[in-house]
Structures are given as structure tokens and as C-alpha cells.
């Protein structure tokens, strides 16, 4: 399952930060999740609940998710537009050479410690 692998990577990163900051427990983790990152929130939260119980540092930690809206840039008219609504073809000029500028992120934003 895709979400489980992502959760393992989040836990690994938090554990590394935990060692760097000599933390004994973490109360919350904030994640920035791009709108088109392909990650399902509910699945992610279910996997989180299951996986953190197996750790010492994160066993009571909550996962907070912030969504980053997806935006695409059109190479021909240099305008950006909403990816989810318009897809890969530019709604302004019909250009097909378009690139996602944001919305694909899975970033660990911050960790809260009590």
C-alpha cells in the first residue's frame, strides 16, 4: 500500500529529527500535502494510527494535514491556472506544454513537542 510506505518515510524523518533535537516524545506532526500528490488522506491517517503505535517517539502523536492547491504553468502564455479544474491543457490559450508548479508535495512541515 502506497500510503503505508509514505508513513514509514515520515516516521523515519521524524525519528532522525528526534535524535538531532534529543526528543523523547512528539505530540503532533504537520504534513503539507499537494492536492495532486496522489495520496489519500483517510488511508494516510489509518496507516499513521497503525504505524506510530509501533514506535516509542511517536506513539501518541497526531498527524495534521495541510493541503497545498495544485497549480500548472503554461509555457506558451506563461499564465498559471488551477490544475484540478483544467488538467493539462491551458484554459487561457489551449497550450499543451504545461508544467505543474505546485501541488505534488509531500513535505514534513513541523513537529510539535510537549
Amino acid at each position: 500500500m502506497h500510503e503505508l510506505g509514505i508513513i514509514f518515510h515520515i516516521i523515519k524523518t521524524v525519528e532522525r529529527v528526534g535524535v538531532e533535537h534529543k526528543l523523547s516524545s512528539v505530540s503532533a506532526v504537520s504534513l503539507e500535502l499537494g492536492e495532486v500528490s496522489g495520496v489519500v488522506h483517510k488511508e494516510l491517517l489509518d496507516c499513521w494510527k497503525w504505524a506510530v503505535k509501533k514506535t516509542e517517539l511517536l506513539k501518541d502523536a497526531v498527524l495534521n494535514i495541510e493541503t497545498i492547491p495544485a497549480r500548472t504553468l503554461c509555457e506558451s502564455c506563461q499564465k498559471t491556472y488551477e490544475t484540478v479544474q483544467y488538467g493539462r491543457v491551458c484554459p487561457c490559450c489551449g497550450g499543451q506544454q504545461t508544467y505543474l508548479v505546485q501541488g505534488n508535495e509531500i513535505n514534513l512541515k513541523e513537529i510539535a513537542v510537549c
Binding site: L23, L108, I111
Partner: peptide, 15 residues
């Protein structure tokens, strides 16, 4: 206890 926030700001794929 006061809540302390540690900013990480990195992609989870970074590691």
C-alpha cells in the same frame, strides 16, 4: 507544558 514547535520543512522523499 508549553508546546515547542520544531520546523523541519523538507520533502519526505529527501532522506
Amino acid at each position: 507544558d508549553k508546546v515547542r514547535i520544531i520546523e523541519v520543512k523538507e520533502s519526505i522523499f529527501a532522506d
